[in-house]
């Protein structure tokens, strides 16, 4: 049983976004890249970094029970359902839940661009997607540091909607983290988060080192539709 991790709200300083990752989200696979477009991406990265407020809220909970198709946590109403998350957390003794977001200003900028500059919206969206992944990385790093402080190890982060963990858990997930109050993250009736550039995830805390630090395509709900794998790569790089 760990000492418990609770970070109500942390703002991350993220200095840059990798251009090649942005290009990947834009469907780039080696076409000619004009200076104009390259400059535009660089400008957009700078603009997005200025507009975004990458933040996260984190809390740890002890695992009470892992069954075949659910994970139950101590002192927490959230029940993680599905075979995939149960298998993933089979020997976890604790989990860190986190929500990360770039904030509403990014959505406002996307809306402004949707009304004025469709190409700008597409590029900005790709940059913001890359950036919110960096924010999630930063939050995950906090979880890893916490695990290390307890002499434990983390598994890769697992998000609602991945595998057979349903998006329906989002409402409880955000409530448990008080994420609406801490970060301003809200849900639509269809369980989509607004601000749209937000990530929720579960990081398992395990007694022994875990194989691999990446999710796989095999249980991805979008595997049937994926256009990235056709190019010989995955959305993880």
């Amino acid at each position: 049983m760990g000492a418990g991790l609770r970070i109500a709200r942390e703002t991350f300083r993220i200095a840059d976004v990798d251009r090649s990752e942005v290009l990947r989200y834009l469907g780039y696979h080696g076409q000619g890249l004009s200076n104009e477009l390259g400059d535009r991406i660089d400008d957009t990265v700078a603009h997005c970094l200025a507009v975004a407020r990458p933040r996260a809220t984190l809390a740890s909970f002890a695992v009470r029970a892992v069954t075949d198709d659910a994970v139950e946590l101590e002192a927490c109403t959230l029940r993680l359902t599905g075979h995939d998350i149960a298998a993933h957390l089979a020997d976890a003794r604790e989990v860190v839940l986190f929500a990360a977001t770039l904030g509403a200003d990014v959505d406002r900028e996307l809306r402004r661009l949707s009304l004025t500059d469709p190409l700008g919206q597409v590029v900005f969206d790709s940059v913001a997607t890359a950036l919110v992944e960096r924010a999630a990385d930063a939050a995950e790093a906090r979880a890893r540091a916490y695990a290390a402080s307890q002499g434990a190890f983390t598994s890769w982060r697992f998000s609602p909607g991945y595998g057979d963990l349903p998006l329906d858990v989002q409402s409880s997930f955000l409530a448990v983290l008080d994420a609406t109050r801490q970060l301003g993250i809200t849900l639509t009736p269809s369980n989509l988060m607004v601000p749209t550039k937000s990530v929720t995830a579960i990081v398992g805390i395990h007694p022994s080192p875990q194989p691999g630090l990446e999710s796989s395509c095999s249980i991805c709900a979008l595997a049937d539709f994926c256009t990235i794998r056709q190019t010989g790569r995955t959305c993880r790089g």
Partner: peptide, 11 residues
């Protein structure tokens, strides 16, 4: 054909 990607199409 894949010689243009999305931002080029849009530009």
């Amino acid at each position: 054909k894949g010689t243009f990607f999305l931002p080029q199409l849009m530009a």
